[in-house]
Design a protein around this nucleic acid. Structure first.
Lengths: 123, 123
DNA sequence: TAATATACCTTGCATAACAAGACGTATGGC
DNA sequence: GCCATACGTCTTGTTATGCAAGGTATATTA
């Protein structure tokens, strides 16, 4: 599948703004079933219209961090034909972490929304 | 007086999550009138109930970046008594930047909201 | 044979948030 | 007089993470 650029004004997010949200994004993506790395990369591009796009060089270290922290568990699958895939699924600790990060995100986004809604004297 | 640790943990935002949002926050805060650094620090703490709290060691480099980029202009005020204050106000370029960052934030927050709303792998 | 898509991983750089310190002015308590 | 605290600015060093740019390897197709 090709990258389509239908909307020219569609902007991807600055790297700094995205920072710290990737763990939440990944944990959420696999919360409804296991997925492998390459799949997560492509799903992030297609399902968010590129706004939350990441490269594999960004994602694999995230997956490794999550694995080391015990938030995801790993299963290799070697199909009869094709390249072996490394499937990730949430652990119980990962589910707790997912809820915590969702809560944190909600707090953050709420505070930002409230702040940006406030107006001083000018419009 | 401190709240207990669990509550306190979720009250403030992880540093990585906050990353990249400070310029937008600061530009917005001074969009309704000039302010000086120490004032911005205290306002961020009080007006957001601590969720977007920053230290001065974080804020001053931000202000310097904004000044170098031409997004804010600076005025020193030395009162008869008291410590000199450095007042910041938006330039026209800063207003454009503020709107751009607001747009970027909206895109980001919208993409996150949509993603977190989805149940996952059902194509 | 070569190119392309799939699928994994690593190294090195840039950047921003923060702690921790420094410097200096005013005010109030002892 | 001396000290603690609040005010107000600024710098340095540490750390985390996103990402470009490389690498390895298999399968398919031209």
């Amino acid at each position: 599948m090709k990258t389509d650029n239908r909307t020219e004004d569609r902007k991807s997010i600055g790297r700094e703004l995205r920072r710290g949200s990737l763990e939440l994004i990944v944990l959420h993506l696999i919360s409804s079933g296991e997925a492998y790395g390459y799949e997560i990369v492509t799903r992030l591009t297609t399902e968010t219209n590129g706004s939350l796009e990441v490269t594999d060089g960004t994602l694999y270290p995230v997956l490794y961090r999550l694995e080391r922290a015990g938030f995801v568990a790993v299963r290799w699958e070697t199909p009869e034909r094709g390249v072996p895939r490394k499937y990730y699924r949430l652990t119980e600790a990962g589910q707790l972490e997912l809820r915590a990060l969702e809560q944190e995100w909600t707090t953050f986004a709420g505070a930002m929304a409230r702040l940006l809604r406030t107006k001083g004297k000018s419009s």
